[in-house]
């Protein structure tokens, strides 16, 4: 056969395949929700046990970088959403450019995040490696920073995967967009938005406690 089928033999049409792919992505996101959900549940249990420690620790986080990163991620999500809208044979360059923007913003996020990690390390806020804190709140604060590093680290890992996925999508679309790329782009965008939403939750949990007036 000179021309390969656009969809695998278990499907009856390209549309059929796309529906399956979309459902698969949503199920995957359900899994991810539970993954972060378990962590956030633990966070709330300990915040309930150590309210003062969590507030004190939270006030040591870098609100400026955190806010900047939130803005960056929201913008990148906007770019990705636009890219999905702009997907067509005529506008493929534009679509790829938008994806490149989102990738750039994602990288900016990671760079800022690494600066934040570095300053936290310098301020002796890394549990297990180098942790010094006001003895009044040391326990709760240590738990807070454990959650902080696990949660943001896991989120950063998801960001890297997302950047890689968007990168592949940008290359594919730039070369030859086909109907099957629409679904792939849709799934990638869904993933990217999910990672963004996780960050919004983390932002509220990490930077805001203890900063209320």
């Amino acid at each position: 056969m000179p021309e390969t089928r656009a969809f695998a033999p278990q499907f009856v049409s390209g549309r059929h395949r796309d529906e399956a792919a979309a459902l698969g992505m949503w199920v995957f996101i359900a899994t991810e929700v539970l993954l972060f959900g378990a962590l956030i549940l633990g966070y709330f249990v300990y915040r309930h046990l150590h309210p003062a420690g969590f507030a004190a620790a939270s006030s040591r986080t870098d609100l400026v970088i955190g806010t900047a990163n939130t803005a960056i991620l929201l913008t990148s999500s906007f770019a990705v959403a636009w890219a999905v809208e702009a997907f067509s044979a005529e506008t493929r360059k534009f679509c790829a450019t938008l994806l490149a923007c989102a990738i750039g913003l994602g990288i900016a996020f990671l760079v800022l995040k690494s600066f934040e990690y570095r300053s936290e390390y310098r301020e002796h806020l890394v549990p297990g490696i180098d942790f010094k804190f006001d003895p009044v709140h040391v326990d709760g604060a240590q738990l807070f920073f454990l959650f902080y590093f696990v949660a943001t680290g896991l989120h950063a890992l998801h960001m890297m995967i997302g950047i890689a996925v968007l990168g592949v999508m940008a290359l594919l679309i730039n070369r030859t967009p086909s109907a099957r790329h629409r679904t792939a782009l849709h799934s990638a965008a869904l993933y990217w938005h999910f990672v963004d939403v996780v960050w919004i939750f983390l932002f509220a949990l990490v930077y805001l406690p203890g900063r209320a007036a």
Partner: peptide, 16 residues
């Protein structure tokens, strides 16, 4: 890390 979420010594809860 030798220190962690479930460690009672830093206020963690093994029951969690």
């Amino acid at each position: 890390l030798g220190v962690g979420i479930f460690d009672p010594a830093i206020g963690g809860d093994p029951l969690l």
